[in-house]
């Protein structure tokens, strides 16, 4: 498969948040400021890429080999949880400045369904080898960060707008997300 196609499809056409509804919780949770959105996006790129590579190898060389595919869910989530811990410890030691920037987002990532979702999608898509899966993971994570950052930018402006009483806060955020999703649907022509 063409890598370019995988990248464009994962970032724009099949955006994890706006088309697949993965990682919607952090999408609303940490999208109040562009700065935090960027931090979260960075942390997700990091974890999603490593998690997809590791789970891919585990799936191919352990689960498939021994015919225990039914252990997939439990294995994947444990791998992701431990990876997040590991990344946290390593970052703390190796790069305190990066840890400062991403640290508080890391624990939130364990329950970010985008990470588990992309890992499962990568191993269950026909024709995805290790290279394709890795590219797919990076592109999906970038798509996640992109949607998050755009959305945060809009929400910053939204605070200053005169929104009808009942729609203030969460409801208008959802409607905005819907309109954003509508805009992203326009990309489907590319494929």
């Amino acid at each position: 498969m063409e890598y370019v196609l995988i990248i464009i499809s994962a970032i724009f056409v099949n955006n994890v948040i706006l088309a697949k509804f993965l990682g919607v919780c952090p999408f609303f949770g940490v999208s109040k400021k562009v700065e935090t959105a960027l931090g979260m996006g960075g942390a997700v790129v990091f974890v999603m890429t490593i998690a997809t590579i590791v789970t891919y190898l585990i799936q191919k060389y352990i689960l498939d080999k021994f015919g225990i595919q039914y252990m997939q869910t439990i294995t994947f989530i444990l791998i992701i949880a431990s990876l997040v811990q590991l990344v946290e410890i390593i970052l703390k030691k190796m790069s305190p400045s990066l840890y400062q920037a991403l640290g508080i987002f890391l624990p939130l990532i364990t329950t970010n369904c985008a990470v588990l979702g992309v890992a499962i999608l990568a191993v269950s898509t026909d024709g995805f080898g290790l290279m394709e899966s890795t590219v797919y993971a990076i592109a999906s994570a970038i798509g996640f960060g992109l949607a998050l950052t755009i959305f945060a930018g809009i929400r910053e402006q939204l605070d200053m707008m005169d929104v009808p009483e009942g729609m203030k806060g969460v409801p208008i955020a959802f409607v905005t997300a819907g309109i954003l999703a509508l805009a992203f649907m326009g990309f489907s022509g590319i494929a």
Binding site: L18, G166, F174, A177, A181, L182
Partner: peptide
């Protein structure tokens, strides 16, 4: 059709929460 697709999901939930708040 839009309500079956992704954007409609966000918009429908937004309005439902607004109604519930009210």
């Amino acid at each position: 059709l839009v309500f079956v697709l992704a954007p409609g999901a966000f918009i429908a939930l937004g309005y439902l929460i607004a109604i519930l708040n009210k």
